[in-house]
Nucleic acid binder design. Sequence first.
DNA 1: CACAATACGGAACGCTGTTCCGTTTGGCAA
DNA 2: TTGCCAAACGGAACAGCGTTCCGTATTGTG
Lengths: 191, 191
Amino acid sequence: MSVEPAAVAPRRPRSDAAHNSAALLAAARVVFARSGVDAPAREIAAEAGVGVGTLYRHFPNRAELVAAVFTTEIDATAVAATELLNELPPGEALDRWVERFTRFVATKQGLSAALISGDPAFESLPAHLIAKLGPAIRMLLDAAVDAGDVRSGVDPIQLLQAIGDLSHRAPSADGSPNAMVRLLLDGLRLR
Amino acid sequence: MSVEPAAVAPRRPRSDAAHNSAALLAAARVVFARSGVDAPAREIAAEAGVGVGTLYRHFPNRAELVAAVFTTEIDATAVAATELLNELPPGEALDRWVERFTRFVATKQGLSAALISGDPAFESLPAHLIAKLGPAIRMLLDAAVDAGDVRSGVDPIQLLQAIGDLSHRAPSADGSPNAMVRLLLDGLRLR
DNA sequence: CACAATACGGAACGCTGTTCCGTTTGGCAA
DNA sequence: TTGCCAAACGGAACAGCGTTCCGTATTGTG
């Protein structure tokens, strides 16, 4: 019994490894925005100032890297909800957050493709999206309802999915929500 | 002026060319069913007993071949509506056609991906789908309404899209419509 | 300070879509 | 029937992709 049962020494990752991992994620965000999610892995590695071997040591394959980027962007969008609510009146915070979410969906046309691709790397994305953005929009909605800005009784998740569906088609040029999304938001408003 | 103004001699295509074109289309259907729409072009050419050069002379690129297959399958599905209506009572014809349409949508998961891919080769597909299958399901619906089987007032196109959406998820194993589609059809029925 | 363990870079591999070109063939004119 | 040539063919060749592999460099520790 020379092996400790459950004592798999964790051994903190080396500092350069941690740095490169973060650099790859950041580089992927930049490259995907510039060239789309189909951009070559080599281009991402180059943007990060790293060899392709390093990319594949940190992410088992390209799809996992894409999924990781989507995940971090979902997280960032969720965090933005709290920030906006601290800075702005509830009604405006809701508008601004929807604008941000819309831009997220519209610019990542690759997201829709990823979700239906069946690639196991993207399996957990829908759940993650709902788990993170559901509470975010619920918080915004509740605040706006309390402030008397919008009607109550709207299911946050349904609203989230509806905005997602509507943002998917007719991406507005300037990044603001398209006409159908604005219509939906107006419908939310109390007169 | 040695050139005749509008007399661009059409010159019928050579018989082997016409034969190979059809063979490629048929081979593509077989290969896509066997290996999915991402199957290599070489595999399709081999199935057709033809070199890859021949494939690319008949179709400018892989996407156009995929689009051509989808188009022919849409056409075949539309034709089936008339055939079923000639053979069966209207209510049953509608059921059987929906089953066929469902199988078409479910097996071609590549279709959904193609439609949102943005590839110009697939631009005309949605219009073609509605143009061909809209009248088909309208004809079936009208016949079933006249026979007193189903309610009137249902928009054929909306029904078509709804069935398509529902078939997309939860593909039933045996190829029959899934539970949600059956529910939708039951809702159509007069008691 | 030495020496593992860990991480790195980039050449190499196998597979893809697409192009190119020397060879073959179908159909018309003589 | 025969001869010809535009039309069509097959498949090697090219460029670009995701991924793997391995000799080399770096990091942190006793």
